[in-house]
């Protein structure tokens, strides 16, 4: 089992919030992550990561004027890494039940404190095989950056990334038939 990178700290049916253990060390945008709820594995896409204070009342302030190196700053103020945290939002795309992959929402949301893992390439490939997950993603506005990022990452797990991207592009072309400008912009982001 690969090492978990963080934990669920808030969960809803369509998305969950993850805090990563290592400050700033969020998985890249569009990465596929998973968390488990008993036998059910929940798959989600990394979207909108942020780093900020753990206490909403206490905002970070600049401290490094005297420092020459950013690393030194954390070295001289060791409490900083405890007061700050990095979190990301994960959009739920699908799940498995009885080891079968389903490209729709799980019956229950993820569990808070559930461990979150990065999916290995073969799992990404398996997940991206039918492109059914694109439809729910497209229907939510403002996700195009994440869609493009995921498709680029998924493509890199294939022997022939161009073929995968072409297939995905064609699927998008059908889904976005009535929005040619959005399609155009999206295609420019995923072209090999």
């Amino acid at each position: 089992m690969p090492e978990h990178i963080g934990e669920v700290i808030a969960a809803a049916t369509t998305e969950f919030q993850v805090q990563v253990y290592e400050l700033h060390n969020t998985p890249p945008l569009g990465s596929l992550v998973k968390t488990a709820d008993g036998d059910v594995k929940i798959y989600a896409l990394v979207a909108a990561a942020e780093t900020g204070s753990i206490d909403p009342g206490r905002q970070p302030i600049a401290r490094g004027q005297e420092e020459t190196d950013e690393a030194d700053l954390f070295h001289h103020h060791p409490q900083l890494s405890q007061l700050l945290r990095t979190t990301f939002r994960a959009l739920v795309l699908g799940h498995t039940t009885q080891s079968l992959l389903r490209h729709y929402l799980p019956p229950r949301p993820a569990r808070v404190h559930g461990f979150v893992y990065l999916c290995p390439p073969e799992e990404i490939r398996e997940f991206s095989q039918p492109l059914d997950f694109l439809h729910p993603l497209i229907s939510v506005p403002g996700q195009d950056e994440i869609i493009a990022a995921f498709l680029r990452r998924a493509a890199s797990t294939y022997l022939e990334p161009e073929t995968f991207l072409l297939g995905a592009g064609k699927e998008l072309a059908i889904l976005l038939a009535d929005q040619p400008q959005r399609l155009n912009a999206l295609l420019k982001r995923i072209k090999p």
Binding site: G169, L172, A177, D178, P180, L187
Partner: peptide, 20 residues
């Protein structure tokens, strides 16, 4: 597939988009 497409054609100068 949609009439809009003929009004605002995709950027087919890009071979990838043309192919899609």
């Amino acid at each position: 597939i949609d009439r809009l497409l003929t009004v605002t054609p995709p950027d087919v100068a890009d071979p990838f988009i043309a192919q899609v």
